[in-house]
Design a protein around this nucleic acid. Sequence first.
DNA 1: GCTTGACCCTATAGCGGCTATAGGGTGCAG
DNA 2: CTGCACCCTATAGCCGCTATAGGGTCAAGC
Lengths: 136, 136
Amino acid sequence: MTTIDGPVSIGELAKAASTQVVTIRYYERIGLLPSPRRTPGNYRTYDREQVFRLRFIRRCRDLGFTLDQIRDLLRLSARKEQDCTDVDRLAAAHLEEVEKKIADLKRLAAELHRLNNCCEGGGRIADCRIIDALSH
Amino acid sequence: MTTIDGPVSIGELAKAASTQVVTIRYYERIGLLPSPRRTPGNYRTYDREQVFRLRFIRRCRDLGFTLDQIRDLLRLSARKEQDCTDVDRLAAAHLEEVEKKIADLKRLAAELHRLNNCCEGGGRIADCRIIDALSH
DNA sequence: GCTTGACCCTATAGCGGCTATAGGGTGCAG
DNA sequence: CTGCACCCTATAGCCGCTATAGGGTCAAGC
């Protein structure tokens, strides 16, 4: 995690937030990042605040939040004087979703396990239990 | 699971394989299902074999195989005299992927759990530990 | 015969979250 | 002044559908 001091180019921002340049432009287009100032040569320049904002976004993405949820979190995080019930709720709801997904995948893995165990290998396709099982 | 005897319409096929009509047309467009015969009124008509094929596809989808993997499985399942090593390999690789995804999500859930536990709720956004943690 | 309604047809655009490609311009070093 | 790394815009593509617009077909009931 490098420290940022002055205004930086989009490439430097990308590096500082472990993002790709195209992704930053994409976030700008969909309104997740504000349009930054431009140099006389029409290059984007970012200040410290945008670096923090992008890092926040990436951290949330890493945790599996959708861009819409992140939009909410950003909006909420700006209202410093309001209480944080909504933030708590959002995070809890997301955790619940993730745990549901894990449960789904576990059931799936169990079924795939059964599938894989039913074929000893080396036989003909015509006798393959996997194909058979997939056909019901 | 209903039995199918004669040629059926796309709607009946959809019902018989728990699919949506649009999805069937989509599968046809991408070459996963063959173009069926048409009635004089230009309606698609399917026979038993296509019902089995579509059920096979849906079953694979339920197990999380991609359409490309299913294309392979269909191709393999047609070569009845060849040995089924490739089928075994495909299924095993898929299981491995699913298990990796489960592991990833578990790590994620653990982190979200820590996140949720660090905020007692009721405070101001300015003091919210979740927002804080998301900001690094 | 005429209407109603369920079903079918094609073509096209949209979802999320990027990624890739084409076809250029900028800025700095040698 | 040339080469190169970087930047710009606009557009299309990825997966696996889903939705929408604008029609045609077919059987039943009047």
